[in-house]
Amino acid sequence: MTTADRYYVPHGSHWPIVGTFGMLTLVIGLANLFNGHDWGQYLAYVGVASILFMLWGWFGDQIHESLKGLYSKQVDVSYRMGMTWFIFSEVMFFAAFFGALFYTREYAIPWLGGEGAGAWTNFVLWNGYEATWPSNGPAGIGGEFETIPAWGVPFLNTLILLTSGLTITLAHWAVKKQKQLQQVLWLAATVALGATFLYFQAHEYMEAYTELNLTLGSGIYGSTFFMLTGFHGLHVTLGTIMLIVITFRAAKGHFTPENHFAFEAVAWYWHFVDVVWLGLFIFVYVL
């Protein structure tokens, strides 16, 4: 517990309501799009734009206040806790999809293949289906497909992300040692690595769709594969954008050895994205 001599309470802000408006427009747009109304997409764009506007303005306020030295040590700790538990919630979000992967591989597919409690399931409904992994189920939903070998691009991507974990740590040292140029260079390197990762992943997706017939509709394998790697890729994208922002802030000299929470928050997030990838690499690609 940290305490302050005097508490800091920020003044009111219109950004949350802008954020709410953005979120709502986004989901109403998407829902209409899914229901077959093409105009929904424009609403969704407006939503995304509003959310970006909100982030820009809200963080702008924060940066402004932080630079003015309004924040106490206590406020800093609150932000750290906030970020930590936000990342934890993200971990649990991924846990749902890892759980789905685990459940279908360990239970659903074997049962459909007649193992254990599934003897009658297999005999009555899916006679002839054998439990294997990868699988697109007894009805072969989505047709035959091939998988992406772990030790090619995915392995390369693992190395890329691990390296980026290193470069961001180097950037952190540079912040602490007040070496601004190094800060910017290491951050730029991290951004470049993130972008390369995304490039490779996009490439992989293209290949999966065009050459391997591996799609989101390829039964349970395609579902778990694309949802896990897709949500991860989305997080890498967000992380990269955040990295770009703090690279610019580093260039402006915003970070001091004492006050650089924004930097650390992004670094934590980036490490989190990294760890999720390791899980993916092992459970989705290798095993």
């Binding site: 899914f34 979000f93 991924f94 846990a95 749902a96 999809f97 789905a100 459940y103 279908t104 239970y107 659903a108 597919i109 049962w111 459909l112 409904l125 899916w126 699988s135 697109n136 189920g137 007894p138 009805a139 939903i141 989505g142 799609t215 989101l216 509709g217 039964g219 349970i220 394998y221 395609g222 579902s223 778990t224 694309f226 949802m227």
Partner: peptide, 24 residues
Amino acid sequence: GGVTMLLTDKFFGTSFFNAAGGGD
């Protein structure tokens, strides 16, 4: 996460909850 899977099962052809595709 769970309701997201519902959404993709309905609109994007995933098979999380469909036995024919290996889900449950």
